[in-house]
Design a protein around this nucleic acid. Structure first.
Length: 480
RNA sequence: CGAGGUGUGGCUCAGUUUGGUAGAGCGCCACGUUCGGGACGUGGAGGCCGCAGGUUCAAAUCCUGUCACCUCGACCA
């Protein structure tokens, strides 16, 4: 059988219909189930386990860097939400309101948090008084609600899980450093844990977070050439602190206003994994977050000694700390191969009578279907090596896709030509900094500004739109 | 919110044009044979056709309303 032949008939081919392919994957791989509330999904055990693995890795990293977890209420009184003007303007159109408690109308309606800046600010105003109280490096893992009009599992749901870090610092320098540090944490996480290359950059004025001085983001390119914002880190300056009356007294007994940040990633990252690594046989999961890293498929398991040997391999890998599953169900081996490929298990171990005779097993890597024979005596180290190879292959393939779909352009015509000839992707082009030009590029090419990359290149001296002297290079693209 | 599409056993769908006893494949259950890329045989269970009205002797099918989901746009993590 040809290596890339489509085995799983239930999944729509991604070239045929990428959106339907995505929907098929999330359902068929057992990640989610729809519910009776639009935009609210059940994240099933296999999907939630991916999130738990992400949480564990990120949470450890946050704590290494001195952050503490807290938990804020899910309700925000309207008056509190209204305190920062830009913020409320940005979020008001998509908040869900609680108007009644039991049968009684509430005196003041409460919104279900779309994000928790206002709650953290109210709290900081209460607990921050002296320079000795700073910094506060808080984070919370919660769900938030945004009443989106069109929804898609993981990519845009009305309720989603995330972490939101909220920090408050004595100086602007410290807060800026925190903003940048967390952007780097996210970028490293995406590359090292999710095998997903990202571009770090700053959002344009029109695209930044409601109430922020500056917003940084990591942008990833999906397999179909559309951009996905994978994480954000905001520097707030002292705007929120002023609006919420947060002050502290410094070493010289002067009243000062502190500076704040916030940063977050969401379950959208699961969508990013699907659309970065998935193929026509199903999901492909990065080993670092895969709920099952290795599946053992016994072949001819009714024959004497096969299941015993399979269990032995299972115990060996399990005790080495590898997330391993032994499927000793009555399904045929072929069925199991397809099933675990669809679920994106990074490595499959096949063990049958012939292997046992030879003293080895077969390891098959999910992304490439590369087969290697592993001597049973060196199982653990070779499995680790193969898992690393899977990660490396995935990263390499994703990076190649990103690079192949990144175009440098000097005019709007060039942008349209590049996108229509080569498909959607990242467009690198210069910009004068004028919002009119930003809008015009989007209107005429469909590609909006994704970010101003931290790593700048000089594509041209002048703006891609108006021809005036350029201030910076912008990455443009169609976004999810 | 604008445009389009779809709702029929667990899943994928046929049946709707032209009203007349609810169907298929897969899955599920039992038993047996199989087992190195989604095995096969035999038997079996499972659906008031999204929901609410209406027309009719008779509605999955026609009419009205409503809800949900999917896709594409505008907005957004």
């Amino acid at each position: 059988m040809a290596k890339n032949e489509k085995l799983v008939e239930q999944i729509t081919s991604m070239d045929e219909d990428f959106a339907q392919w995505y929907t098929d994957i999330v359902k068929k791989a057992g990640l989610i189930e729809y519910t009776s509330v639009k935009g609210c999904m059940v994240i099933r055990p296999y999907g939630y386990a991916i999130w738990e693995n992400m949480q564990r890795i990120l949470d450890n990293r946050f704590k290494e860097l001195g952050h503490e977890n807290v938990c804020m209420p899910m309700f925000i009184p309207e008056s509190l939400l209204n305190k920062e003007k830009d913020h409320v303007r940005g979020f008001a159109p998509e908040v869900a309101w609680v108007t009644h408690g039991g049968n009684e109308k509430l005196e003041e309606r409460l919104c279900v948090r779309p994000t928790s800046e206002t709650l953290f600010c109210e709290h900081y105003a209460n607990i921050v008084h002296s320079y000795r109280d700073l910094p506060k490096l808080y984070n919370q893992w919660v769900s938030v609600v945004r009443w989106e009009k069109t929804t898609r599992p993981f990519l845009r749901s009305r309720e989603f899980l995330w972490q939101e870090g909220h920090t408050i610092h004595a100086t602007a320098e410290e807060a800026v450093a925190e903003t940048e540090q967390m952007l780097n944490v996210y970028a490293d996480f995406c590359e090292q844990a999710l095998a997903m290359p990202v571009i770090k950059g700053k959002k344009t004025e029109s695209d930044k977070f409601a109430g922020a001085v500056s917003t940084y983001a990591i942008e990833a390119l999906m397999h179909d050439g559309k951009a996905l914002q994978a994480g954000t880190s905001h520097y707030f300056g002292d705007g929120f602190a002023k609006a919420f009356g947060i002050t502290y007294t410094d070493q010289n007994n002067q009243i000062r206003i502190p500076h704040q940040t916030s940063w977050g990633v969401t379950t959208r990252l699961i969508g990013a994994i699907i659309m970065t690594h998935g193929d026509n046989n199903g999901l492909v999961l990065p080993p670092a977050v895969a709920p099952i890293q290795v599946v053992i498929v016994p072949v001819a398991q009714h024959k004497e000694g096969v299941l015993e040997k399979a269990r032995e391999l299972y115990e060996t890998l399990k005790s080495a700390g590898i997330r391993v599953k032994l499927d000793d169900s009555e399904q045929s081996p072929g069925w199991k191969y397809s099933e675990y490929e669809m679920k994106g298990v990074p490595l499959r171990i096949e063990i049958g009578p012939r292997d046992i005779e030879e003293g080895h097993c077969v390891a098959v890597e999910r992304p490439t279907r590369n087969k290697t024979f592993i001597q049973l005596s060196e199982l653990t180290e070779k499995v680790r090596e193969r898992l690393q190879a899977v990660h490396d292959d995935m990263y390499k393939k994703a990076l190649e896709n990103q690079q192949r779909r990144t175009y440098s352009c000097r005019s709007i015509d060039e942008i349209n030509k590049a996108l229509s000839e080569n498909g959607d992707g990242f467009v690198k082009a210069m910009w004068c900094g004028d919002e009119e030009c930003e809008d015009k590029v989007k209107a005429e090419t469909g590609a909006g500004s994704r970010c101003i990359p931290l790593e700048q290149e000089e594509i041209d001296g002048k703006c891609v739109c108006c021809g005036k002297p350029a201030k910076c290079m912008v990455i443009w693209g169609k976004a999810y």
